[in-house]
């Protein structure tokens, strides 16, 4: 990436959203190319060096999901989807199609800007692409963490729902198994989607998690404390 402004391709059929959004993105230091359908988006992708695509899923004609699949098949350009809230299937399919992140309409434009910056940082400079870990199931010990539902399933198949804080922390742990994570690192990893909902001490969340998943919370086998270092998930994690 050069010192140039990042170039965003905005694909949105609805002018009442496209125009103010383009203006807002420009005001916040991006270069923006607007298109209103998939066909012209393909043309723009060939004509310009696009750094990131902001893509509306619901479009007449070829929809955003199809375009997303096309982009992923032909390039490494990151994609952020604009979805309707509550359309879980839409969102999940979008992420499966290779989208890097999503925001739900009506969205806070500041949040979109933040997402764009995070995705650009994550994918820029030849960094390994890391998808939003929304739809994975992680198995460790006799537990399964279902990230889509923020729920742990125990060995008997009983669901143990987690709070947002617990979930974010456990997700950070299962995505970095057998790695020591310092408190600061854990805070970084968990300051994601619902940052405002997670401002409690890491230690507190750890002890809550241990009460839920450890047979004996006083001598934990899964989440171990590393003296002076932080915490580690002492277990292999299987993606299910």
């Amino acid at each position: 990436m050069t010192i140039d402004k990042p170039h965003i391709l905005l694909v949105e059929d609805e002018p009442s959203i496209r125009k103010p959004l383009a203006r807002y993105l420009k005001e916040n230091g991006f270069r923006v190319t607007q298109t209103e359908n998939a066909a012209s988006a393909r043309a723009q992708l060939l004509a310009h060096a696009i750094d990131l695509v902001v893509l509306d899923i619901m479009m007449p004609g070829e929809d955003g999901l199809s375009l997303c699949r096309h982009i992923r098949a032909n390039s490494e350009v990151p994609v952020i989807l604009l979805t309707a809230r509550n359309e879980d299937t839409e969102r999940i399919v979008g992420l499966e199609m290779g989208a890097d992140d999503y925001v739900s309409k009506p969205f806070n434009p500041r949040e979109l800007i933040a997402r764009i910056r995070v995705v650009l940082r994550r994918t820029g400079g030849g960094a390994v692409r890391q998808r939003a870990p929304e739809i994975q199931n992680y198995g460790f010990g006799s537990w399964v963490l279902r990230s889509g539902e923020r729920t742990l399933i125990d060995g008997d198949g009983i669901a143990v729902p987690l709070s947002t804080g617990e979930f974010n922390l456990l997700l950070a742990l299962v995505t970095h198994p057998n790695q020591v994570l310092s408190r600061d690192h854990l805070l970084d990893l968990t300051q994601g989607r619902e940052a405002q909902a997670f401002d409690r001490a890491v230690d507190n969340q750890i002890s809550r998690l241990r009460r839920k998943i450890e047979a004996d919370p006083k001598s934990p086998v899964f989440i171990k404390t590393v003296w002076g270092g932080g915490y580690v998930l002492a277990s292999d994690v299987v993606l299910l």
């Binding site: 299937t89 729920t151 198949g157 009983i158 669901a159 143990v160 729902p161 987690l162 709070s163 947002t164 804080g165 617990e166 405002q196 909902a197 997670f198 401002d199 409690r200 809550r208 839920k212």
Partner: peptide, 24 residues
């Protein structure tokens, strides 16, 4: 609703929800 019915630890569910409120 496409969500499946499953056996849920209701106490843990309620605990998790209250924890989210406390976090706020």
């Amino acid at each position: 609703s496409a969500e499946d019915i499953q056996t849920v630890d209701v106490a843990a569910l309620v605990d998790a929800v209250t924890e989210d409120f406390r976090a706020l």
